[in-house]
Write a protein that binds this DNA or RNA. Structure first.
Lengths: 244, 244
DNA sequence: ACGTATTTGTTCGTATGTATC
DNA sequence: GGATACATACGAACAAATACG
């Protein structure tokens, strides 16, 4: 069509251009993971741009988790697996309308899948860590705080064993959003005993690399926990004094 | 343990703090989608920070697709569904085959579940919309751009019918990160015909409120698409010319 | 049609705090 | 402790694009 004759001049900002250039250097491996990149002032000269423009680009990359700047030291390239892993980013996924039951639903979906994937992909080292967290739970039956922490670590370790960083980020996020209710529900009489028992089931299924059993065990666990959790949540929100 | 006595002082930068604050305003809806936010200098005064620090935060948000700045005009809030949709992000994500694989995996997990949930919870109105998007795909077989848009709308409509805002947000996010490859793969000979046929299967299963069939149909669809998609992604990253 | 005010884009200079050797 | 290199942060200034009367 005639109206699309000549493409409009797409105005780009200097900052975005710098960002693009930096990204392509990062990707191409001109600067490797863990390496230090040239100082800001040096880059300014090489790129022939002002310091503010460069810093805007650098900050954007930092917030996306691609580089890390250390005060008084320099700027370093992050590992690829850390790209996009800044919690800030994933907070966006949550929404104010998000209700407890939606969170619980999302949690079940993700953790069941992660358990299945972990059973298929777990390395001996992953398994060792997983076992340690289970032992920790056993030892800290009398200490609610330690128990809750061991519980978290166990679930996170499963996520790591699944080797999918995207879902791992999602797991972290949902955990954070649910954490206060999870802690509360663990303090209900008898819940932590049940949880420990179910964790053992999950561990065994994963150790046997039985993906189906691992999914089922995690499903059982989360079904059970969902009840206590929603219970704790209702109690909590009814106590909730309107803050306004 | 004694060594963990006092929590380390987590040094935060001003820019990151500003960024956090802005994000929470964006999420909480203090500034709505499409609205113009206060001018830079005004924000500086209100937040009591220098303009450079503020701009670094704003640029980061812009590159992630959360806000849009127009020279000589002002800064506007993007729609939630457009967050993370900036081309620059594609460049970053598309550079890693491992990440592509993880994204595809996460997409399958979420969309299969959403299809199942949609079959159980869809309202007549939701179903009407879903049907309209399907018709749109049928009508635009010859127009790749329209077809791709109808494809997006169809999947989004399923997400809406599932009535879980957390998973809906996750769907948007992953969609945006995968979009360029999805478009590419749809342009491969024969792929769009297959996709259309599979969409019909999904639609029928959901219309019958058959959750199991809906899951299966979506699984089929995404399995098939994953092949074309990873294919398109490999081709794309091998074309990548060194910029220097 | 023109000019003025507003707003973002970009650079520079300067002062300060921090890390490393 | 001192010297050096570096990031952090602010403010001022001008350019460029846009909106509005």
């Amino acid at each position: 069509m005639a109206k699309d004759f000549l493409t409009p001049v797409t105005r780009t900002t200097l900052t975005a251009d710098i960002c693009r250039k930096m990204v392509s250097h990062l990707i191409r491996g001109d600067w490797r993971s863990g390496e230090r990149i040239p100082a800001e002032r040096e880059l300014c000269q090489k790129l022939n741009v002002g310091r503010a423009s460069l810093r805007e680009a650098l900050k954007a990359l930092e917030i996306m988790g691609m580089i890390e700047t250390r005060l008084g030291d320099g700027t370093y390239v992050c590992k690829r697996s850390e790209f996009f892993s800044r919690p800030l980013l994933w907070a966006i996924v949550s929404s104010s309308e998000a209700e407890a039951h939606e969170l619980v639903e999302a949690r079940r979906l993700i953790e069941v899948e992660l358990a299945g994937m972990a059973a298929e992909r777990i390395t001996p080292e992953n398994l060792k860590h997983l076992g340690e967290h289970l032992d920790m739970m056993e030892r800290s039956k009398e200490n609610p705080l330690e128990f809750a922490q061991a519980d978290i670590n166990f679930h996170i370790a499963i996520g790591q064993a699944a080797h999918n960083s995207i879902l791992m980020n999602a797991l972290h996020l949902i955990r954070n959003l649910l954490q206060q209710w999870i802690s509360r529900s663990l303090s209900i009489e008898g819940v932590s005993e049940t949880a420990l028992e179910q964790h053992k089931q999950i561990f065994m299924a994963i150790a046997k690399k039985n993906s189906i059993a691992a999914r089922a065990a995690m499903q059982d666990h989360l079904n059970e926990m969902a009840i206590s959790l929603l219970d704790a949540q209702q109690k909590l929100s009814s106590e909730d004094s309107p803050i306004k």
